[in-house]
Design a binder for these strands. Structure first.
Lengths: 206, 206
DNA sequence: GTCTATAGCGTGATAGAC
DNA sequence: GTCTATCACGCTATAGAC
């Protein structure tokens, strides 16, 4: 790409302009979906003409790719910390879920894009490396579940692959209704969800 | 529409052709998304040319609408039965979830379309009546939750609107990985999910 | 009922001036 | 870096023959 140099100030100025454009992309793609968002929409929202976007990006697909790259970098820096810690399985699982919830809070648009366009990422060859991270997430969480069953912290009578999907989907779908800065904060959501995930919704004295 | 008559055999022949076309639409739209599915795709999959589809449907949007109408008719016939029964709140909630899971099993493509295009349904004036059913579902389930807290079957320390979203999303997202006719049947999924929803994933002796 | 043919428009992307 | 201008293509939908 013609716009990428590797010189200090000039490069970082350009990077930050790029990043601001990416945030605009994320907001629009989160709201309207990738297929229904046009490069003209993005240009208009960013205050330039669609053609000018191609100074920063090779294609509409590469805008999507950069959004996901940025999000995955954030997520995996933190997932790796939790996974390599010596916490108990239950505490590790709580940690993983907290990281995911923090992403929903701080990178709301990007997470929505990641969720909404996951099919596209899986099917398009270009995004194979991005889609592979979903398998990494599954490996990490099912590993924690197995360990927790071994220690007796988790129930042994559940299919691990079903429990994994239950956990993954209940947490990530929060992004579809949670609004950063709204009345209900992410800490309150985390408290309720962790409580329901671990203890269920039925009364203990039922 | 020119194709709608109200005469016995001729009409029902046309209806069934229409229904078969709708199934093809649902399959494609479920797989590729509404925006990325072209009427040419649909025509090709159904074995006719795109223009010929307009003998049966006014527009691409009306194809989507008919898919949703058909699904909602199935769902609400059964939801109403459960809601008006005199089962306990917990049994009612189980019943509602069973209906949803049966739809995921029997109307898999249609449910995926409903889930994937929910944004479009909410935002497009044309689909207001369809989108209103989501509010009905919320009213039904939160009512059951309130009753169950009153009887002591459900935990009283949870925010009802958060618990509702937890339940709604964990159940409906099953459609994104469940495959009808696969190794894991809907009864097994139902058993695991009801068990996790009501009792959580933590060991009771934890 | 399905076809041929195409209107009319919006799309992603590019070339080159400034 | 952003603009003007535009290309080449794909899209939904329609008109009218058969």
């Amino acid at each position: 790409m013609a716009s990428r140099t590797s010189q200090g100030e000039e490069s970082s100025y350009r990077e930050s302009r790029r990043d601001r454009l990416l945030s605009t992309c994320a907001e629009l793609i989160a709201r309207k979906g990738f297929a229904s968002t046009t490069v003209r929409d993005i240009g208009e929202a960013a205050g330039l003409l669609s053609g000018s976007l191609y100074y920063y990006f090779d294609s509409k697909e590469s805008m999507l790719e950069q959004i996901i790259v940025k999000l995955q970098a954030y997520l995996w820096q933190r997932y790796d910390e939790v996974a390599s810690s010596d916490l108990s399985p239950r505490a590790k699982l709580e940690g993983v879920l907290r990281v995911s919830l923090d992403a929903i809070d701080q990178y709301n648009d990007e997470v929505r894009v990641y969720q909404n366009e996951s099919k596209l990422l899986e099917e398009n060859e270009r995004f194979q490396e991005r889609a592979a991270r979903s398998k990494d997430f599954e490996r990490m969480v099912t590993g924690i579940l197995r360990d927790g069953i071994a220690t007796g912290e988790f129930r042994a009578d559940l299919r691990i692959e079903v429990a994994f999907r239950f956990i993954r989907d209940s947490v990530w779908t929060i992004v579809h209704w949670y609004r950063p800065g709204g009345e209900l904060g992410i800490d309150e959501v985390a408290k309720d969800y962790l409580s329901m995930l671990f203890g269920g919704i039925a009364s203990p004295n039922g």
